[in-house]
Design a protein around this nucleic acid. Sequence first.
DNA 1: TTGGAATGTCAACAAGGCTGACGTAAGCTG
DNA 2: CAGCTTACGTCAGCCTTGTTGACATTCCAA
Lengths: 170, 170
Amino acid sequence: MSDGRMAQVYRGESLLFLTDEQLRQGIEAMFFAYRGFTADPDRILGEMAYGRAHHRAIHFINRVSGTTVNNLLAILGVTKQSLNRVLRTLIAEGLVESRVGTIDKRERHLFLTEAGHELETRLSDAQRARMRAAFRDAGPEAVAGFKQVLEAMMDSDMRNAYAKMRGNTT
Amino acid sequence: MSDGRMAQVYRGESLLFLTDEQLRQGIEAMFFAYRGFTADPDRILGEMAYGRAHHRAIHFINRVSGTTVNNLLAILGVTKQSLNRVLRTLIAEGLVESRVGTIDKRERHLFLTEAGHELETRLSDAQRARMRAAFRDAGPEAVAGFKQVLEAMMDSDMRNAYAKMRGNTT
DNA sequence: TTGGAATGTCAACAAGGCTGACGTAAGCTG
DNA sequence: CAGCTTACGTCAGCCTTGTTGACATTCCAA
């Protein structure tokens, strides 16, 4: 696997981007950029008793309003115990509402309350501001490439979840 | 900050990528892609008693061989206590060597041992394989855009660290 | 020589992952 | 109806990885 180190370089300019050196740059760019990506919401959350896990839950409850716990579990890719701890505090503090399902009463459907929406807005405004600046600086073509590469980096199940997210505005 | 929601959309096609909807997609793509990004090394590390923090330390000790602890601290962006715990186990298990500085004896310079290099190779091979597949699928122009957006998303200090990383092959 | 920088270590703590086990309510199926 | 399965919650315990605070050591530099 560590082969092909230099092999591709000489096949032409068009394959320069597959050099191990280029790949390493991509890896490190991902590492540093992800820190920037989470920095602003983290700062806001740090002021309260919440963490990144709460942000993720709030984000996707907002995105897929009325989602069941099981569905949220699948999106977030954590265990129900882990999610439950976060959900419990969010419900207790009145940011999330859990309604028993009408068709299937075993299910709980999750919604943001008014307070929940407020926090969600604060968090995504901060995160979007940085993303917007980055998008603006890089330009539309770069943004298209950005999304293409990210999508290609996902597992098939993540890609499914992401695809679902893309269509759904409910 | 939550303004401008729809404002830009109507200014023309060229600003479509700055829609809140587009930004949200970018945010979610980042979230899912980062999971994919770390999935393969995490799987390898899970077999051993190591975690993602060990991977990061090993990666950058390999990249900036002979780095001081302080410098590594700045790159990783964690506290010295947090890093120290990780370094201690890596040194104890013979993956990293810590040499007292010759010029400034207060400094410790960090190097990978033979065993350290082996693990580093296993980990980056796995991570590079996915990155390579993503790069190949997306093509060179997308890759250029990918890097542009990521770089624009960093803080200035991260960007400095990343820039240093880009030049240095030592 | 003294202050400060670089490093390390101990202790305590919290967030947020994980597994395993168990309970309850509700739906489904033979 | 009886019994299995599903959805959800919860308790207990463990791990990694981050944090602060306090303190010791070593050594450079003014």
